[in-house]
Amino acid sequence: MLGAGLTALGWTSAAALTPTESAAAQRLVAAYPAFLRGVEGGALVWREGTRTPLTRSAAQTYAARLNAPGLLDQLDAAYPACAPLTAPAYLSDPGRARFEPLFRKMYGASEAAVRAGLVTVNWFGQPLQVTRVNGAADSLRAVAQDLAAHPEWRPFLTPSAGTFLWRAVAGTPRRSVHSFGAAIDLNTARAAYWQWSGFREGQRGIPWRNQFPAGLVHTFERRGWIWGGRWYHLDTMHFEYRPELTGACATGR
């Protein structure tokens, strides 16, 4: 019955995890220890005992896989934390595929549930609402403290374009990570975003443009945040809390 249900949802279960998949799943467990206990028999095991099968999308197109990825699709991301800032390859969007049931189970399945976990973070005098779940708010406070030592970066940091907003990604059925209070957008006046130039998702030739200093980006990454400027579908104002993807960088702090 489980296999039939996964197929109906457009997911296929893995017969056995490869060493790479297993390592990625273990990094997920290590990143969210308050919720996850381990990996057993091709499933993620939650601390309260439920199991989430490690699946992969059966979709044949890039957009369809983003719309309904399996958990293994999310774990496929090889995010280059603390590496030099360079133009990503075509359709290289590490961290952009998000298995929504995972986020809903941790942060809240409704706007009201997410709001219950929000706290205020002082972002250079601007109060921002960020989730305390998984230590995201504490991490952002640490980022701000680190960045305060670099006043030359302030024009990129403020004003922030926002954190929590319960919404879908524009033009898609995907829930934005802003919905879970685990993302921040920086100053839009210094940012580049792929849709602003009129490109379609998956279109070739999206130009990579960036003004954000590498040191600023690496400061976020060392604290567990990924950057939208590392995506082919670039979003240079955007950072989201995804410590499962930045662990190697964080250990070098």
Rank of each mutant, 00 (worst) to 15 (best):
W196I: 00
A148P: 11
R175V: 07
F99K: 07
F103T: 08
E40C: 02
T251L: 11
S139Q: 05
Y107N: 08
T172A: 05
Y107T: 04
N134T: 09
V119W: 00
R200C: 00
C249F: 10
G135W: 10
V114I: 05
D138P: 01
L85R: 08
C249K: 03
V133A: 10
F239C: 03
S22Y: 13
T20M: 14
R56Q: 12
G10I: 06
E244K: 03
L72N: 10
P207K: 09
Q74K: 01
A14W: 05
A64S: 12
N187K: 00
V169L: 13
A250K: 09
R47V: 02
F164Y: 15
A116I: 04
T251N: 05
V45N: 11
V133W: 06
P33V: 01
R115T: 06
L71K: 09
A64I: 06
S179V: 06
E111A: 15
L75Y: 08
G181T: 10
Q195D: 09
Q203F: 01
A250R: 15
G229V: 03
P243C: 07
A89Q: 13
A68K: 11
R98C: 05
L245D: 15
A149L: 14
E244H: 13
L165P: 04
L157M: 12
T251H: 11
F124H: 01
D93A: 02
A214H: 01
A161T: 07
L17P: 06
G10V: 11
N67I: 04
A113E: 08
S179C: 11
L54W: 06
P243L: 09
L2E: 07
Y32M: 06
N122L: 00
S176F: 13
N134L: 13
V217F: 05
H238S: 09
S110T: 14
E100R: 09
A59E: 02
R242Q: 11
S13K: 08
R230P: 02
Q145L: 14
V39L: 12
Q126A: 07
M237K: 11
F103Q: 10
D138Y: 07
W194N: 11
N187W: 02
L54C: 07
S57F: 03
R47E: 06
